[in-house]
Amino acid sequence: MQFFKKFFILTILSLSFISCSGTKSTTANTTKDGSSIKNAIKVKSVAEEYQIVRQLCPNCKMNGQALLSEGNKHYDLLNLTNEKGEEVKYYFDINSFFGKW
């Protein structure tokens, strides 16, 4: 019986985490939703960028990727098209690894 109780609790927690992972925060200065350079999502690799994009924009088609610089900072911009045909852009802060290899 205790096994089912633990399984049920873990399932509920997992579902809660999944349903919350796609929501965007509306709190000023804490939003890192990738909507602009100012709100760029910090990543540790290009692979992480693609993993995040797959979560944020499932079934989107990749149109291109660009390297942007602002001051001494570097960013990746991923351009996509969603299922509705709308252009979607995500900005990523790549300063943790850019130019360090």
Results as ranks from 00 to 15, higher is better:
87 E>A: 13
9 I>N: 11
4 F>E: 12
98 F>L: 06
7 F>E: 06
59 N>I: 03
35 S>F: 06
65 Q>G: 07
75 Y>M: 06
9 I>M: 15
54 R>S: 11
2 Q>R: 11
85 G>N: 11
30 T>S: 06
18 I>R: 03
47 A>V: 13
23 T>N: 07
37 I>H: 04
83 E>W: 10
45 S>A: 02
93 D>I: 05
55 Q>P: 00
71 G>C: 15
58 P>I: 08
89 K>A: 12
39 N>H: 15
6 K>Q: 05
37 I>A: 05
44 K>N: 03
96 S>H: 04
64 G>H: 12
12 I>R: 09
88 V>I: 15
72 N>Y: 12
16 S>Q: 06
44 K>Q: 03
8 F>P: 00
2 Q>A: 10
66 A>C: 06
54 R>I: 04
40 A>K: 01
47 A>S: 15
30 T>N: 06
96 S>Y: 04
86 E>G: 01
63 N>I: 08
82 N>E: 00
40 A>V: 01
9 I>G: 09
62 M>T: 09
5 K>Q: 13
55 Q>R: 07
29 N>K: 14
54 R>C: 05
99 G>P: 04
23 T>M: 13
36 S>L: 12
59 N>W: 05
66 A>R: 09
59 N>S: 11
58 P>H: 10
9 I>F: 15
69 S>P: 00
95 N>R: 08
101 W>C: 08
36 S>P: 03
18 I>V: 12
3 F>Q: 13
9 I>E: 14
44 K>S: 02
11 T>C: 13
83 E>Q: 14
3 F>A: 13
2 Q>Y: 05
13 L>H: 01
77 L>E: 07
51 Q>H: 09
